[in-house]
Amino acid sequence: MITRQFGSEVRWMLRRPRTIIGLFGLVLVPIIISFGIWTAGDGGGGPGLAAILQGNGMVVPIFTLFLSLNLLLPLVASIWAADGLAGEAQHGTLRGLLVAPVSRVRLLFVKLFGLTAMSLFAVTLMAVVGIIAGTAFLGTNGMMTLSGTTLSTGQGLLRIALFVVLVTFQMVSIGAVALAVSSTTEHPLVVQAATMTTIIVFQVLGQFQSLDWLHPFLITTGFPGLIDVMRDPIPLGQIWDSTLLAGCYLLIGTGLAAMRLITKDS
């Protein structure tokens, strides 16, 4: 029963026109980046990871996801979370699900599953397109890390897979918090606005040295540390911290959403 509901949820998300548009937009990112770096030629590059992109196409997926994690991926997660509960309430379909009946906890899990599956799909899609576009435009010879070592293609793919999982987890955690917001309203735009405002405000707060006591609480603080995937050997410290931080957000978001759903009048 639950697998059938999971399947229905994912099919429903994939059938939505804005999902398709969103995925199309996401896929453009690695293509534009590859193209841009290719056009810039040897003089190109840039700060941080961008500096090693030239001739190193396998890094494009990681660079793309790293960049998108700051704004684009949270936006997509918030849209999915917004449509998941607030959108269904708006269309009156949430009532239909509840009298079917789908228990409220089950409903939350269906929504979380949809969010996770679609996030994983979107991130993987970006990574795959990134590998193709990066290799096509910039060429590749294994994967050169930030530490100056060169990994074999297989190891490089493993790194990309690891990064995909890590980024997806961050995205799902943001989405879980957005789901909690989504359970309180019938207006999907409110959810998106609230989520994106929070992400942006967090990033701004992260810039202030005087607020450094606050930084460990902000999910955005964990984003930069994920780049450690591109170091060799991989230092796990920051990656663990970021993932645990996101895990706390996931727990809080899911818990709040559950509390709200259970007590909610529909």
Partner: peptide, 25 residues
Amino acid sequence: KRKVTLAVATAGVLTGAAGLSLLAM
């Protein structure tokens, strides 16, 4: 069942919050 679920959800939120503080320490 509802009370149990509610308690579990609350515990989840608290665990998350405690985890955050722990990470921040």
